[in-house]
């Protein structure tokens, strides 16, 4: 069960994410393999290896799931079979 604040690691690469927003029954994969707090390393699906980048936020189309990549990796992040897209932080002038 995913909940905000949860940190998950990829089973196929160095990637790490933090869950920002999630709904019940979510299934996140990286490189085709389920992400977990302490995953055992596994074989990647080569079609899902476009990479993810530290500091980027990834969302599904409905924006019901949002994760923050906290460590870059070679795998791409999918939710229920759909690749997550990057979401832009609205650029604001620095106020502090």
């Amino acid at each position: 069960m995913l909940k905000p604040g949860l940190r998950l690691k990829s089973a196929v690469c160095e990637a790490e994410i933090m869950v920002i927003k999630a709904t019940e029954g979510d299934d996140l994969t990286c490189g085709g393999v389920a992400m977990a707090e302490a995953p055992e390393s596994a074989e990647a699906n080569p079609d899902q290896m476009d990479g993810c980048l530290i500091g980027k936020r990834y969302v599904n189309e409905a924006e019901s799931v949002e994760v923050l990549c906290v460590k870059s990796g070679d795998g791409s992040i999918y939710y229920n079979g759909d690749e997550l897209m990057t979401k832009d932080t609205k650029k604001l002038p620095s106020s502090d």
Binding site: G55, L68, T89
Partner: peptide
């Protein structure tokens, strides 16, 4: 933590 993290993620671009 949730307040401060929300504030930073909502207003600052990483790097």
């Amino acid at each position: 933590h949730e307040h401060l993290v929300s504030y930073i993620l909502g207003s600052v671009e990483f790097m």
